[in-house]
Design a protein around this nucleic acid. Structure first.
Lengths: 229, 229
DNA sequence: TTCTTTCTGTATTGATCGATACAAAATTCG
DNA sequence: CGAATTTTGTATCGATCAATACAGAAAGAA
């Protein structure tokens, strides 16, 4: 049943050298423009007409190269990860302590999410702020949820290592602490989208880290009680 | 030029006693349904057809009662505030200390945002998660931004009072601390929408408060330095 | 050159979008 | 009762939605 037809496969990165009329646009550049538009407006609110205009191509070229609006969004998510993920996670990964890693994550997020790295990219994180799952597109929604879950897992694993290294108390609530760190980082995206400055978000990061030592010792389950009145 | 015509004013709460055929549906109940739908799917991804079905009315009734999709969303935001705001802010307002106020805000948020108050409401905060401003509707976007700014102002004012009362050091970064608290709360909405449980979010709240004492003393500007290596 | 393949631009497709026209139905006023 | 007023249900409106048909254009292969 294997026929040599393959119209349903959009030519991703042009694996075959060439054949027929060559593509007249830069696929990667067009994808970058589509990513920015999806990032800024969200999936449902972005129309094919807006995409084709931003990408500088006609709709048949869009569908030939990317397949569908949903497939284009999926590739935009991939592109976003390739292009921007390191801005926020490379120093985290390289840090020698969990404290330094978390601080780097938040400080680098403060810079990246406010577009302080130069170009006029949209504000906030495309993945964090994506509501595509709530908009009725389950498959894409599962993708962004998986990305967000991965971020949580990264922090959890780093904190687990810190516990094993003795940096954090074994009684520390690693899950709660990881969720806390990502809650702050998510909040940075929300505030960045509302126009908060890099300095605003760095103040949040500093405030977060100022309480870090309290996490080092332990986290008693509930009432530690503050004896002051 | 004042003619006694008034077709462009949708009958909000039926100020005049009655005249003509009476409305066959409960305006408030229909608004509640519309609110839930907007809350769950967002503005752009919610169609008039979905709204009329959820509200149990025809589209002419919707337009006669609410004016337009944008006006309905604006009323939905008002309804949301009336119906749900107190769940998160009443204990905050009643607390005797800034610490207790923030703790109440976060703990009550953990409960409310996960739908732990009973009904099958959508997860997360409608205002926090609204992207209507990014979707190209500037007027509605300004509304939700104003609501979010109001939340920030509430926390800032409470912390200012705490500084005046001597609960927080005068050197404390009140703006940064307020942004930090709202960043955590915003992160709770994001995690709630991804399915985090009330216990998950309460762990975040506890972790946040565990570091609170570090905020009480002061916030040195930058490097306090962790001497460990 | 001629054939095959692939892309581009124009013009559309059926479906759905937000919003209404219209007449019958339901009420108050005179 | 009949006149005036307002809502309801049906049946749309033009615009836009995501997605394509089609023919001409541009390349390699024969």
């Amino acid at each position: 049943m294997q026929k040599p037809d393959r119209p349903p496969s959009p030519s991703k990165v042009t694996p075959a050298p060439a054949r027929g009329r060559p593509r007249a646009f830069d696929r990667e550049a067009a994808l970058a423009q589509a990513t920015r538009l999806f990032w800024r407006k969200g999936y449902a609110a972005t129309s094919i007409a807006e995409l084709t205009e931003a990408m500088g191509i006609g709709s048949p070229s869009l569908y030939a190269a990317f397949g569908s609006k949903e497939a284009l969004y999926a590739e935009a998510l991939d592109h976003y990860g390739r292009r921007y993920e390191a801005l926020v996670w490379s120093n985290f990964a390289a840090a020698g302590t969990a404290r330094a890693a978390v601080e780097a994550l938040l400080m680098d997020s403060a810079a990246a999410l406010t577009g302080s790295c130069g170009s006029g990219d949209p504000l906030g994180c495309m993945v964090t702020l994506s509501a595509v799952g709530s908009e009725g597109f389950a498959e894409l929604g599962e993708r962004v949820r998986a990305s967000r879950a991965l971020a949580l897992k990264r922090v959890e694993e780093r904190l687990d290592r810190a516990v094993m290294a003795g940096e954090l108390a074994a009684s520390a609530d690693v899950h709660g602490l990881a969720r806390f760190v990502l809650a702050v980082q998510g909040g940075l995206s929300l505030q960045a989208r509302d126009g908060a400055s890099r300095a605003d978000l760095e103040a949040v990061a500093r405030t977060t880290m100022a309480g870090w030592e309290a996490q080092v010792s332990a986290l008693r389950k509930t009432d530690a009680g503050c004896p002051g009145g």
